[in-house]
Amino acid sequence: MSGIALSRLAQERKAWRKDHPFGFVAVPTKNPDGTMNLMNWECAIPGKKGTPWEGGLFKLRMLFKDDYPSSPPKCKFEPPLFHPNVYPSGTVCLSILEEDKDWRPAITIKQILLGIQELLNEPNIQDPAQAEAYTIYCQNRVEYEKRVRAQAKKFAPS
């Protein structure tokens, strides 16, 4: 494992614990031996107030490669969400998460999670990743928002 990646992720964890947006979660997972795995984080993004996503808490896994922060983490909703920019596998399609697009090593975990929260309610229809959600979003916004509200209710924190 890269010392650069681990040191950056340790800084990220410290900064997150000191200050993070209300309702968001970002925690490194534990290895079988109980030690912390900084390369694999369990996160959760709350649906934004005043949107059909409100009330939901959407679980996301963030996986970092050894060359982080040169390369972005892979962000994957578990379980996958109904959304035009979420692949059926759950992987998020967002330009700041793509090395050859808008990724920059200075982007923080907090910025990534806030960017994904923004994307939930403002899909990028130029870059669809899920045919069904994309089609319904474009053709029947009322039905799309109904499905999103049902999903938010399903993923409401207990």
Rank of each mutant, 00 (worst) to 15 (best):
S2K: 05
S2C: 15
L6I: 05
S7R: 08
S7M: 14
L9V: 00
L9R: 00
L9I: 06
Q11H: 12
A15F: 12
R17G: 02
K18H: 08
D19V: 06
D19P: 05
H20V: 00
P21Q: 00
F22V: 04
F22A: 05
A26P: 01
V27L: 13
P28R: 08
K30L: 06
D33S: 02
T35S: 14
M36W: 00
M36I: 07
N37G: 12
L38D: 00
M39Q: 02
W41H: 10
E42Q: 09
A44R: 01
P46T: 06
P46G: 07
G47A: 03
K49D: 09
E54R: 06
E54L: 04
L57W: 08
L57I: 10
F58K: 05
K59R: 13
K59P: 09
L60G: 09
R61D: 11
M62K: 05
L63C: 06
K65F: 08
K65V: 07
K65D: 04
Y68F: 10
S70H: 07
S70N: 14
K74S: 15
F77Y: 03
E78G: 13
P80M: 14
P80W: 14
F82Q: 02
N85T: 00
V86D: 02
S89Q: 15
G90W: 05
G90K: 02
G90D: 06
S95C: 06
L97N: 01
E98R: 07
E99D: 14
D100I: 15
W103F: 08
W103D: 01
P105I: 07
A106E: 05
I107W: 00
I107K: 06
I109H: 04
K110H: 08
L114C: 13
Q117Y: 09
L119A: 01
L120I: 07
L120M: 11
N121A: 12
N124R: 03
N124S: 05
I125F: 10
Q126V: 14
Q126M: 11
Q126P: 08
A129N: 00
Q130P: 03
Q130E: 08
A131V: 11
T135E: 11
N140P: 11
N140H: 09
R141T: 12
R141H: 13
E143F: 07
Y144V: 01
E145C: 08
K146S: 15
R147H: 08
R149M: 09
A150T: 11
A152T: 08
A152H: 02
F155R: 04
A156P: 10
S158E: 05
